[in-house]
């Protein structure tokens, strides 16, 4: 992320004013178990993915003083389609870019994430990978499990969100106000095997999803 003070101020203002106005005032979040959110880094917020607003909503749950440590993890191929877009997501959103499919070429795609955790940063990560069908939980990718096992001390906080997929779903640029609920889960650690972690994580996300009754949307 940029060391340039001007860019850091722009990032702060963007999140303090624009993001909070849209997410907290225009849409509105109902947060359950807010006390389970990490007080400081390193930590990983791992949530289901329905909308481009997901990362912004998760980031607005955290106090602004932690903003410099907040880093959403996002795919290079989706966000770096133009120079301006690439600049914006790198410097203002502050993403850690991940190259999809690089594991098959023998490269660890999560090196940058592990380094960020070692610096005490807080990652915002979507284990499903892409947004998929709005308001449906897709199949989890392997990244979250590998990251958890590589850094077993780091708490992984499962989060289930509902509503943003109605407000701004994939394929639409029209924002329609809907309330969003955010259910924060108890932290998990990748201390056991990879499989055990993935099973525990999926169970916890599914349990969080079942905490509320969500209205039909089809």
């Amino acid at each position: 992320m940029s060391k340039n003070p001007l860019i850091r101020v722009m990032r702060f203002l963007f999140f303090a004013v624009v993001v909070r106005a849209v997410i907290l005032v225009a849409l509105g979040l109902t947060v359950r178990h807010r006390e389970r959110l990490p007080k400081d880094g390193p930590a990983v917020l791992a949530a289901n993915h329905n909308s481009n607003l997901d990362a912004l909503a998760l980031m607005s749950l955290m106090p602004l003083k932690l903003l410099p440590k907040l880093r959403p993890v996002a795919a290079v191929d989706y966000f770096f389609t133009s120079k301006a877009r690439g600049w914006f997501v790198t410097h203002i959103i502050g993403i850690i870019p991940v190259v999809r499919g690089s594991a098959r070429k023998g490269v660890n795609p999560l090196v940058a994430c592990e380094e960020a955790l070692d610096r005490g940063e807080i990652l915002v990560l979507f284990p499903e990978g892409s947004r998929g069908d709005p308001e449906k939980l897709g199949r989890l990718k392997t990244g979250i499990g590998h990251l958890a096992c590589a850094r077993p001390d780091v708490p992984i906080i499962p989060v289930y969100m509902h509503g943003l997929g109605k407000a701004l779903p994939k394929g639409s640029s029209l924002l329609v106000p809907f309330n969003c609920t955010v259910n924060v889960g108890e932290p998990l650690h990748g201390t056991g095997s990879y499989n055990a972690f993935m099973k525990a994580f999926e169970a916890r996300i599914t349990a969080l999803a079942a905490e509320d009754k969500h209205p039909d949307w089809d």
């Binding site: 509105g28 509503g163 109605k166 029209l174 329609v176 106000p177 809907f178 309330n179 039909d216 949307w217």
Partner: peptide, 23 residues
């Protein structure tokens, strides 16, 4: 009124096709 309508529309079952219309 805005908060109340938003809360109402978020609670009730809605159809995907009506998303733009709700705006």
């Amino acid at each position: 009124s805005y908060l109340a309508l938003k809360e109402y529309l978020s609670l009730i079952p809605t159809r995907r096709i009506d998303r733009g219309l709700l705006l």
